Simulated assay, not measured.
Amino acid sequence: MKNDFGGHDNHHYDNVDAYVGQALGVCETLPKHEDSFYGNYVVMTGDEVGTCLKNMYRNRYFTPSGNISGSCESQFGALTVAKLPTDEEILREAMKKLGMEEQLLMV
Rank of each mutant, 00 (worst) to 15 (best):
H11M: 06
V20D: 05
D4N: 10
L24R: 05
Q22H: 14
S69P: 00
N55R: 08
S74G: 14
D35H: 11
R60I: 04
C27K: 06
K54G: 06
P64W: 00
T29D: 07
L30S: 07
P64I: 02
G7L: 02
V16E: 11
L84G: 09
S36R: 10
G39E: 10
N59E: 10
F76A: 12
L24T: 05
V81D: 14
L105D: 04
K96I: 14
T80E: 11
D35K: 02
V42H: 01
D9F: 01
E89C: 02
L24K: 05
Y61G: 00
M100L: 11
G66Q: 08
D17I: 14
R92Y: 05
C72A: 07
R58T: 15
L91E: 09
V42K: 00
G77S: 01
R58K: 15
G7T: 15
D9Q: 12
C52G: 05
G7F: 07
I68P: 00
P85I: 10
Q75W: 13
C27S: 14
C52Y: 00
E93M: 13
K96V: 12
G50F: 04
G7H: 10
G99H: 02
D14V: 09
T80L: 01
V16D: 12
S36P: 11
N3A: 08
Q75M: 08
H33T: 03
T86K: 13
S36W: 12
R58Q: 15
E34F: 07
G21R: 13
I90V: 09
G25Q: 09
G7N: 04
E48A: 06
Q22C: 03
N3L: 07
Q22G: 09
D14S: 15
R60P: 04
N3E: 04
C52I: 02
M106D: 06
V49H: 02
T86F: 02
